[in-house]
C-alpha cells in the first residue's frame, strides 16, 4: 500500500503536567504503532493505561510531548475530517434529526444538499437505519444512537475511524449486534479502524491487530495478530467463534496479563498509602 493510507505513531510520549515533578503523569511512554489500510486495531487495557490519550493523539485533540504522528506521511497537527471519531455517548446533536446529524459534516463542508443527503442515506442504510431518517435522536435507543454515530463518522469519508469505547454504555445483546455490524462495515469500507475497549472478548472478536497496554507509564506490552473477525465474516456465526477453544484460550491469556497489571496497580496504591 502507498504511504497515503497509513497512520504512524513514532516514539510518542505524552506527559500531563503537574504543579511538581512528582505530580506529572506519564500517560504514554515511547509508543510505536503503525496502522495500515484495512487494519482493525483494538487497544485493550485497564483504566489509566493511556488508551484514550492514544486515541486523542490520533484524532488531533492533543499533541505529543515527544515524538510525532503522521497520516499518509503528513504530520497530524489537529482534528480534521480525514479521521472520524465515534464516542461513547453524548456526541450527537439532539436538535437535529437522524438524517441531519448524519449529513452534518458534509453540510459544514458546503456539500450541496442533494449530494450530501445521498451519501448520508447510503451510510444510514449501511448501519441499518434506512427507515429512521426523520426520527429525532432522543426517540432512538442507545444502540440506534451509536449506529447514527458510526454513520455520521463514515459520511465524511475519513481514511480512519476512531472509536472510544462506543459500546461501553450498551446492553450485552445490543453490544453483540453492533460488534457484528462494525465488522461488516469494516469489510465493506476497508478503512483503518482504531477501537478502544475494556472488554477482552470484544477486543479479541473485533481486532485484526490487538495491542494490550499497561498503565503507569502507558506502554504497549503485547501485540497480537488475530483472525477471529475474518472467521466471523466468513461464517457469520459469532457465538461459535466466541466459544471455540482457541478463542477461550486467547481470552484467558489476555485476561491474565490485564489482571496482573491491576494487581500490580493495587499493590502500588497500597504501598503509596502506607
Amino acid at each position: 500500500m502507498s504511504n497515503e493510507q497509513r497512520l504512524q505513531v513514532k516514539s510518542v510520549s505524552v506527559i500531563y503536567p503537574g504543579r511538581t515533578a512528582r505530580e506529572q503523569v506519564h500517560a504514554l511512554d515511547n509508543i510505536d504503532l503503525t496502522i495500515n489500510r484495512g487494519d482493525f486495531v483494538v487497544a485493550l487495557g485497564a483504566s489509566g493505561c493511556g488508551k484514550t490519550t492514544l486515541l486523542s493523539l490520533m484524532a488531533g485533540f492533543i499533541t505529543p510531548s515527544k515524538g510525532e504522528l503522521t497520516l499518509g506521511g503528513k504530520p497530524v497537527l489537529g482534528p480534521a475530517s480525514d479521521r472520524g471519531v465515534v464516542f461513547q455517548k453524548h456526541a450527537l446533536l439532539p436538535w437535529l434529526s437522524v438524517m441531519e446529524n448524519t449529513e452534518f459534516g458534509l453540510k459544514l463542508q458546503g456539500v450541496p444538499k442533494q449530494e450530501r443527503r445521498e451519501i448520508a442515506a447510503k451510510n444510514l442504510a449501511l448501519v441499518g437505519l434506512k427507515d429512521f431518517h426523520q426520527h429525532m435522536i432522543y426517540q432512538l435507543s442507545g444502540g440506534m444512537q451509536q449506529r447514527v454515530g458510526i454513520a455520521r463518522a463514515l459520511t465524511c469519508n475519513p481514511a480512519m475511524l476512531l472509536m472510544d469505547e462506543p459500546m461501553a454504555a450498551l446492553d450485552a445483546l445490543t453490544r453483540e449486534t453492533i460488534q457484528e455490524l462494525l465488522l461488516e462495515v469494516w469489510q465493506k469500507t476497508q478503512k483503518m479502524f482504531f477501537f478502544i475497549t475494556h472488554s477482552v472478548e470484544e477486543a479479541l472478536f473485533l481486532a485484526s491487530h490487538l495491542i494490550v497496554m499497561s498503565p503507569r507509564p502507558g506502554r504497549i506490552t503485547h501485540r497480537y495478530e488475530l483472525d477471529f473477525n475474518k472467521r466471523f465474516l466468513q461464517t457469520g456465526d459469532s457465538r461459535a467463534i466466541k466459544s471455540s477453544p482457541d478463542f477461550i484460550k486467547m481470552r484467558e491469556t489476555v485476561l491474565s496479563i490485564i489482571y496482573g497489571d491491576e494487581r500490580a496497580a493495587e499493590k502500588q496504591k497500597e504501598a503509596s498509602h502506607a
Partner: peptide, 29 residues
C-alpha cells in the same frame, strides 16, 4: 454543550465559528 459534541464537530471538519454557531449556540438555546 458536551465536550464530545464539540470534538465530534471538529472531527467532521468544522471551523471554530461553525462549532460556536452550529453546536454551542444550539446547546445553549
Amino acid at each position: 454543550v458536551s465536550i464530545e459534541q464539540i470534538h465530534a464537530a471538529y472531527s467532521m471538519g468544522a471551523t471554530r465559528m461553525q462549532v460556536i454557531w452550529h453546536v454551542i449556540l444550539k446547546s445553549a438555546l
